[in-house]
């Protein structure tokens, strides 16, 4: 990988954007706290309750936004690179919905209460199942139609099963939580949720980063990639495991947040010269920035309504999706 000054500049810029949004996320909240007091409380000084608010309510929220966004952006970039299809995205191909089903099952069956790792593990299992299914149904050679239709079917099935499980719960609030699992939210999460999701997202990132070289080679076609010494089976394995871990960890704590994995790689693709390996890191930062921004926006637009994150990301993402469909249609038909 050559040191391209533009690429370094892009990563630095995205990193700075993430940092700025992270700071804004920590400083903005329903209670008006002076920035100076906030930062002092964050570093463990000042009134005890203020420290608690900063370190147990606002910090986990900002950390989760960054992590979940990075997971979604990165998974989207890798999926698009591997399937060589700009419409692939964890939300659209049903990975997020299946992860949500796994998480809901773990919670309602009581597994999550008996040991905390059951929650992300079950979400990971759900995500894994859907990625394998999509690869089988659409295949690396499968066209856009097959991919989108397979994703639609998997999403619909997982969504219906999630709704069924929640409707059967004895808890009167459970049924209204279908909306959380469909649209995602980061409100009232604690550090516990950070510790639940972090190991999975970090493992996923460790699996997905090294796929860059293989994905670069794959842009020339499977034969060319094989000729240049890329083990396609190993690549596929890493991709499946890495995406499942990332989406599983992210969805288990934040629900499904759609379109981030579609929009972010698309916006950044030209800036990285359409090289999948570079798109991975850039999309991780871009995704983090997008979810941080969306999470700040939901708090500014309707502070006491717990507006769902997916509402905003879909409003931005769905028109993108339509635009991409039109574009690929011109190419395919």
């Amino acid at each position: 990988m050559s040191r391209n000054p533009n690429y370094s500049l892009l990563l630095t810029g995205l990193g700075a954007l993430c940092l700025a949004l992270f700071a804004a996320s920590v400083l903005i909240g329903p209670a008006a706290i002076r920035p100076g007091d906030s930062l002092r409380a964050l570093s463990g000084q000042g009134p005890e309750m203020l420290q608690l608010v900063m370190r147990q309510i606002r910090l986990p929220r900002a950390l989760l936004a960054l992590m979940v966004g990075a997971a979604l952006g990165m998974s989207g970039a890798v999926m698009q690179g591997f399937l060589r299809n700009p419409l692939a995205e964890p939300g659209l191909v049903g990975t997020s919905a299946s992860a949500a089903l796994g998480a809901v099952l773990a919670i309602q069956l009581g597994l999550a209460a008996s040991f905390p790792l059951a929650l992300p593990l079950a979400a990971l299992a759900g995500a894994l199942g859907s990625v394998v299914l999509v690869l089988l149904l659409a295949g690396p050679r499968g066209g856009t139609m097959a991919l989108i239709l397979a994703g639609l079917a998997i999403s619909a099935l997982a969504g219906a099963a999630t709704a069924l499980v929640l409707n059967l719960s004895p808890n009167p609030y459970a049924a209204s939580e279908i909306i959380f699992w469909m649209l995602g939210s980061l409100s009232d999460r604690s550090m516990l949720h950070v510790w639940i999701a972090a190991p999975f997202i970090i493992c996923g990132a460790a699996l997905l980063f090294p796929t860059g070289r293989g994905l670069d080679a794959l842009t020339l076609g499977e034969d060319a990639a094989a000729a240049s010494g890329i083990d396609l089976r190993q690549l596929r394995l890493m991709l499946v495991a890495g995406t499942a871990a990332m989406i599983g960890g992210a969805t288990a704590v934040a629900g499904t947040i759609g379109f981030v994995g579609l929009v972010v790689p698309h916006v950044l693709r030209h800036a990285v010269g359409a090289r999948p390996s570079r798109l991975i890191a850039a999309s991780a930062l871009g995704g983090g920035a997008m979810v941080l921004a969306a999470d700040i926006a939901v708090r500014l637009i309707a502070p006491e309504r717990d507006l769902k994150l997916g509402v905003l990301t879909s409003i931005v993402g769905a028109p993108f999706f339509l635009h991409l469909i039109l574009k690929t249609r011109r190419l395919e038909w």
Partner: peptide, 10 residues
């Protein structure tokens, strides 16, 4: 309530 809900998790 019996069962689990995110609403009560807080």
């Amino acid at each position: 309530n019996p069962g689990h809900a995110r609403a009560e998790e807080m």
